[in-house]
Design a protein around this nucleic acid. Structure first.
Lengths: 159, 159
DNA sequence: CTTGTAGTGTTATAATATTACACATATAGG
DNA sequence: CCTATATGTGTAATATTATAACACTACAAG
């Protein structure tokens, strides 16, 4: 199983995610409009998080709208339907690495190269679930983000 | 051990936290200035997170400064030294419930009453540590926040 | 066709946070 | 004590992130 920071065929990430989104939308009566699709493509271009206004700059260059609501609406659609996540620590957005699978994402954010790797967990079966259960707290949403240095950047630092 | 949402003598929370901060600062040559102390007191008034500008409104009323940097500097001091935390999901700040102890906080945020309970974990000994180790990722900071409904609010909803 | 739902375009504004620079205070070393 | 340096404060300006409001458009269901 891949846990993340190593090299990979990124073209596959993009195609796979777009196809999954296409399928999911047509099966669920959702409109995968031009802007929504383009925002997802922009997010998929690299495994980093992009700020809403960075995305907006891309869209604006392409004549797809120049006002904040354009991008925030598209992001809201993508996040709601599980095609992207908001990285709270960065106030930025990242394409989902496991689209179509219900999951509680865990993000590892490299503060050097800014790459982000998303893994998943089952919060209800971890210490979070145990703690919440002990407190009688019902979990609806989780934010789990870890900042640090990825393996590549650790190696680079040693040179 | 208390995990949180039940009633308690809140006066104790406040006094205890302020004393701990006093002691820590004098032992470490840090200046626990009037503004810093007041911001911590304001945060300690309830187990909720406050936005920077909410805090600023308090300070402003009391003649302790009216510009954003005043409160952001105080918050930076409190967060850096472990007396408060930023709740990333809310872009808001909360007094630390375990001051003086090095820890990775876990927050349970009730979306109904907005109370926040902080528990702690040892990330390196949990699934996070395991996953990060498998990826060769070195953890420097963690954000773990859970949103949901606390026991009191679940009971209220049943009435 | 017409009516309702969802989506878009645009203006304006709100909410959160930082930069920069002048000035004040605290503290350590002589 | 005194002064040099580091640390903290005051303030104006601005950057960044996000939402509200409203008019208009497209499309699908009845």
């Amino acid at each position: 199983m891949s846990v993340g920071f190593e090299n990979h065929d990124h073209t596959f990430c993009i195609q796979d995610a777009l196809e999954t989104a296409d399928t999911y939308c047509s099966e669920n009566g959702l409109q995968f409009t031009k802007t929504r699709r383009r925002v997802l493509e922009i997010l998929l271009m690299q495994h980093k998080a992009l700020g809403a206004y960075d995305i907006l700059a891309h869209l604006s260059d392409e004549g797809l709208g120049a006002q904040p609501p354009v991008v925030y609406r598209a992001l809201d659609f993508l996040v709601t339907n599980g095609f992207a996540h908001k990285i709270e620590k960065l106030n930025a957005y990242s394409a989902c690495s496991h689209p179509g699978i219900s999951h509680s994402p865990v993000f590892m954010i490299c503060r050097v190269c800014e790459n982000i790797v998303e893994t998943k967990t089952e919060p209800l079966h971890s210490f979070l679930g145990t703690t919440a259960e002990a407190a009688g707290f019902s979990i609806e949403d989780t934010v789990i983000e870890v900042e640090g240095v990825c393996p590549s950047c650790q190696k680079s630092a040693q040179i």
